[in-house]
């Protein structure tokens, strides 16, 4: 318990001293994650469309070769960037450019290189997700679009991709959350995101664990918020489960104009006078019946005495 109190006060001390740095780090992490996920999705969609352009044997050799080449290139891109660690990709690209250009070209802006690395990494994952999303849309949708004269591009843009997007939205959310966390490896090339803040704070204060605890809470807050927002977007995209009739159709029209046969009669429940008179009628009828029953009993009892002397039902 002492330790927890200690941790709490340490965290408060750290936060009050360095909260500007932490908040800057959070902002940088979020901006990088949002931008890179968006660009990554775009890359994924482009790759997905390119990979699914259909070709048949009757197409020209050039077209078939070109489409096959595209598929191979996308394949290579996906395998390379999905199959190597992002931290290494960052280093590879950051130092690769000056190496190949003899320092003529260098990344001077950390944002450019960070967005570039995270985007193409996300794009590699998204390319596969989009391909899966496109395949998962019923082939009938493509046929329906073709049948009204849409070309491949129009079919994709207006019919298939909106549905594929809905199908892969959970995947995009996954990638977004992964990016919030994994942009932390960008500290390796000096990008000051949230985790880099931790290193800077620790270097100045030597309070490793309290700072790590702040980081844990910070990341968890970001990711929880992200999944909440994504769920909300999913719900929005699904739209309302009901719809309005643009005009009443013939059958629903009848609903308001129909008259119940009892209307205005004593049996109409909406007519208070009618109900009262109906109640009076009912009471009178019950009284009559009761009277008749009494009479019947008397008759029965009378007859009973004549028929059997052991009859115990009589009063």
């Amino acid at each position: 318990m002492d330790k927890l109190t200690q941790l709490g006060s340490d965290m408060v001390t750290l936060w009050s001293k360095y909260h500007d740095m932490y908040l800057d780090g959070i902002a940088n992490t979020l901006i990088l994650a949002v931008v890179a996920t968006a660009i990554g999705c775009l890359i994924g969609f482009v790759c997905g469309i390119l990979q699914t352009i259909p070709y048949t044997k009757s197409d020209s050799v050039f077209k078939r070769f070109f489409l096959k080449l595209i598929r191979v290139l996308v394949r290579v891109y996906v395998e390379v960037f999905r199959g190597t660690p992002m931290i290494l990709q960052a280093v590879f690209i950051f130092f690769g450019l000056p190496y190949f250009t003899d320092n003529a070209l260098q990344f001077t802006n950390m944002w450019t290189v960070s967005i570039l690395v995270v985007s193409i990494n996300t794009g590699a994952y998204m390319a596969e997700s989009v391909r899966g999303g496109i395949i998962s849309v019923d082939p009938g949708q493509t046929e329906g679009a073709k049948a009204i004269g849409m070309n491949h591009f129009q079919t994709m843009l207006y019919v298939i991709l909106p549905q594929a997007l809905r199908n892969i939205l959970p995947q995009i959310g996954n990638n977004f959350i992964i990016n919030i966390k994994d942009t932390s490896v960008m500290f390796i090339i000096g990008f000051t995101e949230f985790f880099a803040t931790h290193k800077a704070v620790v270097g100045a204060s030597y309070r490793y664990f309290p700072s790590a605890a702040i980081e844990m809470i910070g990341y968890l807050t970001m990711t929880l918020l992200a999944s909440f927002i994504l769920r909300y977007i999913e719900k929005k995209m699904d739209g309302s489960s009901s719809y309005d009739l643009a005009q009443a159709d013939a059958l629903t029209m009848a609903g308001g104009t129909y008259n119940h046969p009892n209307r205005g009669t004593p049996f109409d429940e909406r007519n208070p006078e009618g109900v009262k008179s109906m109640l009076r009628e009912e009471l009178r009828r019950q009284a009559e019946m009761e009277e008749a029953r009494q009479k019947g009993r008397q008759v029965e009892a009378h007859q009973g005495r004549h028929q059997s002397t052991t009859d115990s039902r009589g009063e």
Binding site: D138, G140, Q141, E143, G144, A145, A147, Y158, V159, P162, Q163, R166
Partner: peptide, 11 residues
Amino acid sequence: MVFQSFNLFNN
């Protein structure tokens, strides 16, 4: 063309 399975655009 009108299909057996309608093929209306679901979106």
